[in-house]
Each structure stands twice: as structure tokens, then as C-alpha cells.
Amino acid sequence: MLMYGRIKVRDTVRVPPDKLGENLDEIIEELLWENFEGRIDKEYGMIVCIESIEEIGEGKIIEGDGGIYFDVVFNAITFKPVMQEVVEGVVSEIVEFGAFVSLGPLDGLLHMSQITDDYLNYDEKSKRLIGKESRRTIEEGDIVRVRIVALSLREKEPEKSKIGLTMRQPWLGAMKWIQEDKEKLESGG
């Protein structure tokens, strides 16, 4: 089970001619950030950041293009959510049908039906979800412990990738609820 990894990648970077006047190392780093961050690979997940450049190869010029192509070896940090993994995240947005939880580089959807066994009401004014019987609330900024139950990573269109989450299991939920439960258990026991 790993969420973050470090990989070494070799790929080609095209340096456009109008950038030739500047420092090559800097331009290449900049281009790598532009090209690779947010890119999703089926095996390694999403490239979160370029850690370091190890090697810049010879620049090649191809007919019909003024750009220069460099073979670059670099280290990158990747993020890969794994099915059934329990993770903690921050609620980034509350909407009618549930909550979006930020897992770091990607956001996961926590659907209304997957938050508690209780029926939930959406309070539009305060942007909160309130349990009908338990009166427990969840709002933006809450830290939650969730499990990943659905995963769809799109290589071609990273922004359309979806992660489905659930909290309807023992010891999952907003951290404040867990704390409450724990205290209740300790005093009761």
C-alpha cells in the first residue's frame, strides 16, 4: 500500500527556440514542471512534483521544427491512490449531494449516502451537512478519515479522474466524531 513514490523518468523535452537565450537548466526544469506535473500514469499514478534533474542529454534538432529536443532524466514524486486504502483528508467543499475531500494532489468525492447511517440535511446557508437524529455536522475544513472505494484514473484527461470515498464503517468519519465516540467509550467502559 503506497500513496506516494519516487520514480526516475527519462523523457524528451522540447525547448522552443524563443527560450534559447536563457539558462538551459532553468528552462528545462521549468518545461518539465509545465509538462509533467499533473500527468497521470496508470502504473505510477500522478506526478506531483519534479524533485531533481539528473541528466540532460545532447540536444537534437529535427527537420521541420525550430525546437531543440533534449533527453532528460529526472526524479519525480508520484501520488497513487490505492483501492480500499484508509486515508485522512480535509473537506474542501460541501455540496448538495455530499462533500469533496482533498487527499493532497487529488480530491475525492464523499457522497451523501456514504457519510453516516443517519439521514443528512444540507444546510445551504452555513454550507454544512447535518445529521437528522444525531445532529452531527460536517463542514469545510474538517479532517476526515475515509476509505477509497472507487477509483478511475484517466491518463489522457487527468482532470476527469475520479476517486470515490466512504465513511460508513466503524472508526471512519470526521476526526471530531471519532474523538467523541472514543471519549464515550472510555467513560462508559
Partner: peptide, 16 residues
Amino acid sequence: ARIIGARALQIAMGAP
């Protein structure tokens, strides 16, 4: 020919 051609293209595309 190739060197001059490639360089001219670079300049045309904004190389210093």
C-alpha cells in the same frame, strides 16, 4: 545547408 536552414528557422521562431 542543413545547419543554416535549422538556424534560420530558430531565428524565425524567436531565438535570440
